[in-house]
Amino acid sequence: MDKLIFVDYQKCVGCATCEMVCSLVHEDICSPALSRIRVVRYPTEASNVPITCAFCESPPCVSVCPSGAITKNADSGDVLINPVLCIGCRQCVQACPFGHANFNFARGTAFKCDLCGGSPQCVEFCWTEALQYVPLERALGEKREAVGRNILQSS
């Protein structure tokens, strides 16, 4: 997988736009509880951490799923849930180390980020640029640059 949702939580203000957009796109309702991406807020530390799927290389949710509903595409690296095959056992919710996989009780099936099929809407609507959908190499390069600048300034 060449592109991923890169999170710069220093920039996140916790506005919940991404959560609203995500639930609106996937569930036709603005409800952060049904959003794939979720922002963990630390008001006292003034920090906000958006958490979305890490698209692990060997995802625990894929190994744990008894019905084979969650699959990792070998080419694109996407990890997707097929709601048709999901039996609603919530093993993936317990297995995901990030608390990303979640469960919709009304529907009875699990849900997780599907990258909106290639153009993640949370990124489109993120106005602080805390979320970026960029190739891994570019994101890392920017980060390296920031660290370098930091060292230069302090030395």
Binding site: P60, S63, V64, C65, P66, S67, G68, Q91, A95
Partner: peptide, 26 residues
Amino acid sequence: FTMIKKGTPLSEARKLLHNKGSISTM
């Protein structure tokens, strides 16, 4: 039965069974 239905590779199943992180959730 789950493995047959899901088509889990035998090698992967063996790896999972030796991995503390994965086996604790399954």
